[in-house]
């Protein structure tokens, strides 16, 4: 099975190479979507051996993931893995993430930070926000509350599932959107425990950088633009 990792990257020239190097032994191809970076992210990624696509303008993480996913499908991926550029996801969890797809048990697998493995250095504020997000997802977005991680950025799709999940949110709201589309379709989904490492660096650019209210607002607007 051909596994292709998709990394959306915005101004990550310092960290992208290390992420790519750690990923290389675990996947068959790496696509970096340089989302209109102002630094040398594209060059750094190319030098590290990734396939690099460039957004001429910054369009957001969701947009980057979508571009990368379409590219991975074109390149004949059987499994597509979404991963963050900043190194907060430990690539060593990728085999566990794709295992249910390889075994034919699932079509979509989400990495969850709340399934036993304690996140390293997760601040209390972030924990509370995520708890709130989970409630919001259940009642407002309609995502089953059996989903333990409302904002996981580490996920794997079977190619057929990636074609089916038609996510359109360009910024941070794509996480909730993908969860909703996956859990409401006839696709088989699963969560596996992953560990996430928080550093001052990754926190500065975290999921809630734009503010949770913006995510809610974007999801709301999205309802009117199908």
């Amino acid at each position: 099975m051909r596994i292709i990792a998709v990394i959306p990257a915005y101004n990550e020239e310092k960290r992208i190479a290390e992420t790519i190097e750690k990923l290389q032994p675990l996947v068959d191809g790496i696509i970096v979507v340089d989302d209109g970076s102002l630094d040398k992210t594209a060059d750094a990624a190319k030098a590290a051996g990734a396939i690099v696509l460039r957004h001429a303008l910054n369009r957001g993480q969701g947009a980057g993931l979508r571009t990368g996913t379409e590219a991975a499908l074109r390149l004949g991926a059987d499994i597509i893995v979404h991963i963050d550029a900043d190194g907060q996801h430990d690539p060593s969890f990728i085999p566990a993430l794709v295992e249910p797809i390889k075994a034919g048990e699932a079509d979509v697998v989400f990495g969850s930070r709340f399934m036993g493995l304690a996140p390293v250095n997760m601040p209390l504020r972030r924990k509370m926000l995520l708890r709130g997000a989970r409630l919001f997802n259940t009642f407002a977005v309609g995502i089953p509350n059996t989903v333990t991680d409302p904002q996981s950025g580490l996920r794997a799709f079977k190619a057929s599932a990636a074609e089916k999940i038609d996510f359109k949110q360009d910024r941070m709201a794509h996480t909730s959107e993908i969860l909703r589309l996956a859990t409401r379709s006839d696709l088989r989904w699963k969560e596996v425990p992953v560990e996430v490492r928080y550093t001052a660096d990754t926190l500065a650019k975290g999921q809630f950088g734009g503010g949770p209210f913006r995510i809610v607002w974007q999801l709301f607007l999205g309802m009117f633009n199908k």
Partner: peptide
């Protein structure tokens, strides 16, 4: 607001097309 959101999506679609243009078809 809604029409702005739609414009943003169209813009993303264009940026995406441009980004994927040189990607070889390898199915």
């Amino acid at each position: 607001f809604i029409s702005l959101d739609r414009m943003e999506r169209n813009l993303t679609e264009m940026v995406r097309k441009e980004a994927l243009r040189d990607l070889p078809e390898q199915h």
